[in-house]
């Protein structure tokens, strides 16, 4: 209880480092979610909107990637960006860019998979109508995305939730460097390991509030989408 009070004081008090950590976290999560959405949603729509040979296998592949453990994705990106790795000359390891790359690798398959599932529900109906009127397949895809917009927004929020809560991959490629790549989750891990529980609790509260906000937004959008 004492820790909780200290944590709340810390949260509303003067602690530039706490705010700096929150800022890095939000920046990283927003950028990685945007990139993943820009790649994942069109890709998912492409898979979900039409029937083609081997679709089954493409979906299985995406589903497998959706379940990749974050530390494995982190390790893969680490080995790529390491000084001894193929992209080592870019000197990106232990930077926010490296963390964004790892998160894009993690989240894009999730966005693709979820979008494909969402789009495939109204797809046959829209396709039938559109073919009757003679609309091109590309415009059909656009129509489907428009039709499912509220569900797709919740997909983006799911991706964002995953990005902000992820710890394994960003610890490996970000290195938890103070003032640079330290984000909320890695800071919580570190502070817990150091026994500084009130700092960890403060960050935990912020994370909880953000994830509550996201959930509320998802629920609101879904209820509006169904109405």
């Amino acid at each position: 209880m004492d820790g909780l009070i200290k944590a709340i004081n810390l949260l509303f008090g003067e602690n530039p480092e706490l705010r700096q950590i929150i800022a890095v976290t939000l920046r990283m999560s927003l950028i990685s979610t945007s990139i993943s959405s820009l790649v994942g949603i069109p890709l998912g729509a492409l898979i979900g909107s039409r029937e083609f040979k081997g679709k089954h296998w493409v979906q299985r592949f995406t589903n497998t990637l959706m379940g990749v453990p974050p530390v494995v994705a982190g390790l893969a990106v680490f080995l790529m960006l390491s000084r001894s790795g193929p992209l080592g000359s870019l000197k990106l390891l232990y930077s926010v860019t490296a963390m964004v790359i790892a998160q894009v690798v993690l989240i894009t398959p999730i966005m693709t998979g979820l979008t494909a599932t969402i789009i495939s529900i109204p797809a046959p109906r829209i396709r039938e109508t559109a073919q009757g009127v003679g609309i091109s397949t590309w415009r059909q895809m656009g129509l489907m995305i428009y039709e499912c917009r509220s569900q797709l927004v919740s997909t983006v929020l799911v991706g964002f939730g995953r990005a902000i809560a992820e710890v394994g991959a960003v610890q490996i490629v970000g290195g938890n460097v103070q003032y640079k790549t330290r984000v909320m989750t890695t800071a919580i891990m570190m502070q817990t390991n150091m026994g500084k529980f009130h700092f960890a609790i403060s960050l935990g509260i912020v994370l909880l509030v953000i994830s509550f906000g996201i959930n509320a937004l998802v629920n609101y959008l879904e209820s509006r989408g169904n109405a």
Binding site: Y94, G175, N176, V177, Q178, Y179, K180, R182, T186, A187, M190, M194
Partner: peptide, 9 residues
């Protein structure tokens, strides 16, 4: 560079 980590990392 302050990493807040164990010796290995």
């Amino acid at each position: 560079i302050s990493v807040g980590a164990g010796m290995g990392q």
